[in-house]
Design a protein around this nucleic acid. Sequence first.
DNA 1: GGCGGTTGTGACGACTGATACACGTCTCCC
DNA 2: GGGAGACGTGTATCAGTCGTCACAACCGCC
Lengths: 225, 225
Amino acid sequence: MDIEVLRRAPLFASLGDDVFAALTDELIEVDLPRGSSVFREGDQGDQLYFIVSGKIKLGRTAQDGRENLLAILGPGELFGEMALFDPSPRTATATAVSETRLAGLKNENLRALLETRPEVSAQLLQALARRLRRTNESLADLVFSDVPGRVAKALLDLADRFGRPATDGILVAHELTQEELAQLVGASRETVNKALAEFVQRGWLRLEARAVVILDIQRLRQRSR
Amino acid sequence: MDIEVLRRAPLFASLGDDVFAALTDELIEVDLPRGSSVFREGDQGDQLYFIVSGKIKLGRTAQDGRENLLAILGPGELFGEMALFDPSPRTATATAVSETRLAGLKNENLRALLETRPEVSAQLLQALARRLRRTNESLADLVFSDVPGRVAKALLDLADRFGRPATDGILVAHELTQEELAQLVGASRETVNKALAEFVQRGWLRLEARAVVILDIQRLRQRSR
DNA sequence: GGCGGTTGTGACGACTGATACACGTCTCCC
DNA sequence: GGGAGACGTGTATCAGTCGTCACAACCGCC
């Protein structure tokens, strides 16, 4: 397994090489094809996961079957950590958006580390605080912004995290279908499609297969406010 | 100051009496009338707060002045803890909903405790995880439920936390104006008012000054799904 | 007694979800 | 290699929810 990504993860950055080496022995490798789930809402969770490569979507399903996505996570990020502190079952389903490799860590193993290493606790607290901040941000967006605004914001966020410079703009290979993008911003696929078409028509974007190229990031930023 | 509430707070429950006594010396008492703020969005934060009595609303303001509330917190709960892990300024404004007494604790003091007491870290992690869970819940509600549904949900939540049995139902003295309730559920005051009027007309609720009496909690629960 | 803040209610318009359908593309199987 | 079907995408029409605006009534407090 490529452990370089994990070595650089903030949670482990403070650890000595020996402690980190001991930890890697406890990691459980998981490989997932697109569309398969790591765990589902309601499952009992005894593990948390680091993303080595690929992308994971965290989603919830309403009783009528509609879905909404809480987050798209990429390499170096961790998820499923809430089971550590709370015995209640998982409140979200984690699904691979693309072919994905994970490193799982049993709660008990991390718990032992937390007992002896206050810096690791601090890092975990920071990670949770940041997630809470992001979620609060999304809440405000849902209340204040219309669908095109939320789409613009989501694209900019994805660009920040997964964007790569291209010849004529920023290539964002988000790997999401428009349906998934719609679930992420809390709107219908059709409305998201129209918002994208409008952005394209204005020359701010170019659409590619499960990707976009941002051509005019300034305008897009302006639209997202 | 009435420290009984704090002694029972989960964050301190695991501490010995001696450690707790030392901690109380570091607490800073704050009294607030209705409407005054503990801190505002953008402030630099170096303290977190426990609610001894009263209620606090956490809110954000959009650039056009519209507000939305992230949470209503009551006695025993803590807030402002995100400044501990993240140097960035406060992302919400904390305002007293009623006359409120707080106990403030400097970040540095808590940090010292975290270094030596892993149980306190664990409690703090748990508190954050629960908040994140609640926030995710709110997100899903915004996407899936209509305004009456969200109002019903908010009332049930407030009833859980602040309700007291009355002769003909559950008295929920939330102390919020309809405007504040609207900001909490992410809707306009008028729409919230109409939802409340409908519930009253169906005999599920009785309205009182900054309070409601829930008469038929079953139906209200059903409406909230 | 007046005045600001809060509540109650109606009319209207805009955004957006639902529905329906055409089209393109990819995969898998024959 | 080609075709069928599943999946993803592009677009239009229509109806419903909800926000905005407007205004009346009410309450509590100075």
